[in-house]
Amino acid sequence: MEAITNDIHERKDRKRKMVVLSVLGILIVLVFLISMNTGVIRLSPLEVIKTLFGSGTDKQNLVLFEFRLPRIVISLLIGAGLAISGCIMQGISRNELADPGILGINAGAGLMVMLFISFFPSTTSAPVYLLPVLALIGAGLTAAIICVLAYKKNEGFKPTGLLLTGIAVAAGISAAMIVLTLKLSPEKYQFVATWLAGSIWGSSWKFVFALLPWIVVLLPYVMYKAQVMNVLNLGESMATGLGASVTREQLKLLAAAVGLAASCVAVSGGIGFVGLIAPHLARKLVGAKHQMLLPITALVGALLVITADTLGRWIIQPSEIPTGIVVAVIGAPYFLYLLSRSKG
């Protein structure tokens, strides 16, 4: 009797997960089409599809393939990358508030950008690649510093120690940034503030190709580690008892999380909220097993960012709202709704 009910439960569960998966997929495709259609130059859905299949006019080709498509691809990649990175962080630290920002990635990248803006005479004369590369270096350095400070020889990483170290270093960096902020001219400040609020400004194929290797290598690697993450989630002593070499696995996963988040933040600025909220949304939808949680998290993240980017371009045309702001404005209420519906 029990076996039968279990079986029914399992089948229901699997069906539910498939529904979630396909709904997310359909939504992403839908928003993708709408996003292709959004902007100063309007194209009808039919024209979009025609152009995608290669029979558009030169102008349509230019708008779609050189401006909109790279941007959309980037926002999908960033969403997935940051969401997975957040999922890893929450899993390793076993704290609901952890996100890539905990490892100082946003702060480090932000400080680099700010230093660059403060000491470089004009932002337009600098090479396009310089800013994201600097942001990447800043993010990586900060994460490395935090890991070194939080690592203890005989104990490895303690979740609390890692979180507290991260918070402290990030707070120090933010303090330095406040001091710098007050010395900036208003125009430069506006640029930095837009960057910090998170806006996808590197929208050309060059950036897509710079970002793609990170995602293509690291996402499958993390998915492959799903079982390890399940074990780590049980707590350190339990994981050790089950035969996992905890510290080494933690280090590998941390490195993956840093790589993902740093490469994304370098292109997008501080859209850190995706990393906090997407794993929670996914967990509410499909439960805590990482085999299912990770892909759903990636999809939720991608959907959030592509929706936010589309809305941000559409609301106050022809100017734009930073994507990070829109992500918070649409993500937070839905999250709160789910939170108030869930039990315990």
Binding site: E96, P322, I325, A328, V329, L336
Partner: peptide
């Protein structure tokens, strides 16, 4: 409490960031 606090704080600061920009 922790999650609602984090989400609402993010929402409110996003709104104020938007207004400020």
């Amino acid at each position: 409490l922790v999650l609602a606090g984090a989400a609402l704080s993010a929402l409110l600061s996003a709104l104020s960031e938007g207004i400020a920009l």
